[in-house]
């Protein structure tokens, strides 16, 4: 009788371990990085998010009333933008002329813009993801950069027909390093890799800068455009502090983003043009 009980216990442990192993294998195999959403996934995601989006409308209206004051401020700013637009148009004309001069067909900065509304934010706690209401049917592809008026916030992680998931830069997943440059003078940059985000200090870090150049505080940190995902010159933040390693060989730069990652409601997707 005793022997029988002991065998049962062992049997249970073995079954439990096999189930656990199977579970881990299934989850690992199915959730590969860079996987594309299957057709049923797309249908379920789009349908349920359509319901969420419809239910969200009264909240948006309520939020709209609260933000009336902000609207006045924004109108003031818009006037300033008009004068900047004129300068921008002139600069664009110069670029066009220069490109014709050097017979350059495209630059890394060529993108078109698509505005989107956030449907849900960071459900499940672990994923620093937001879901937006533009998808494949709107021309969105995996890897596109996503920005707000204050700078880069992340990139498109997955796309369904009418929605997309954006992986924020604040994600603790350190596998994706972004190539960045720090503007140290008018035409001089220091290059490095964005190493991660410290949620405690709310600062990003660029590690391993070997160049021995003086980096002033408040220098602009932008993307280099050297990776496939992000176009060149997209603002990420401003330099906050610089520290040297023990051997005084490499610098670590901490910088802050102007983006309020906690309350992102509207975003802009930088779509890559076919010519670029």
């Amino acid at each position: 009788m005793y022997k029988q009980k002991k065998w049962d216990m062992r049997h249970l442990v073995v079954v439990f371990l096999i189930v656990l192993l199977l579970f881990l294998v299934i989850v690992t195999v199915v959730n590969k990085k860079d996987r594309n959403l299957s057709y049923p996934e797309k249908v379920i995601k789009d349908t349920t998010l359509l319901v969420v989006k419809t239910l969200k409308k009264p909240f948006d209206l309520l939020q709209g009333k609260v933000t009336d004051k902000k609207l006045k401020e924004l109108k003031e700013k818009a006037k300033q933008v008009d004068s900047m637009q004129a300068k921008y148009d002139e600069a664009l004309k110069d670029i066009k002329d220069l490109k014709e001069l050097v017979e350059l067909n495209s630059t890394l900065r060529e993108n078109s813009y698509l505005n989107a509304t956030v449907v849900s934010r960071n459900v499940g706690y672990w994923n620093q993801y937001i879901t937006i209401d533009k998808g494949k049917k709107n021309g969105v592809e995996v890897g596109y950069a996503v920005v707000t008026s204050a700078g880069l916030i992340g990139k498109i992680e997955s796309v369904s027909n009418f929605n997309s998931t954006v992986k924020l830069l604040t994600s603790e997943d350190v596998s994706d390093k972004i190539s960045v440059k720090i503007k140290v003078s008018d035409d001089d940059y220091v290059y490095g890799l964005l190493n991660g985000y410290n949620s405690k200090t709310k600062k990003f870090q660029i590690e391993g800068i070997a160049e021995n150049k003086e980096i002033p505080a408040d220098s602009l940190v932008t993307t280099t455009g050297l990776s496939n995902d992000f176009p060149s010159g997209v603002l990420i933040g401003k330099v906050d502090s610089i520290s040297k390693d023990h051997f005084d060989l490499a610098s670590t730069v901490s910088f802050k983003s102007e983006v309020d990652f906690e309350k992102i409601s509207y975003v802009t997707i930088l779509k890559k043009d076919a010519t670029s």
Binding site: T48, L49, V52, L55, K56, F59, V118, V119, S120, R121, N122, V123, Q128, I130, T131, L168, S199, F261, E262, K263, I264, S265
Partner: peptide
């Protein structure tokens, strides 16, 4: 679960 995330901050 998804809707309420729009009211509170991300973290």
């Amino acid at each position: 679960e998804g809707l309420i995330t729009n009211i509170f901050s991300l973290n």
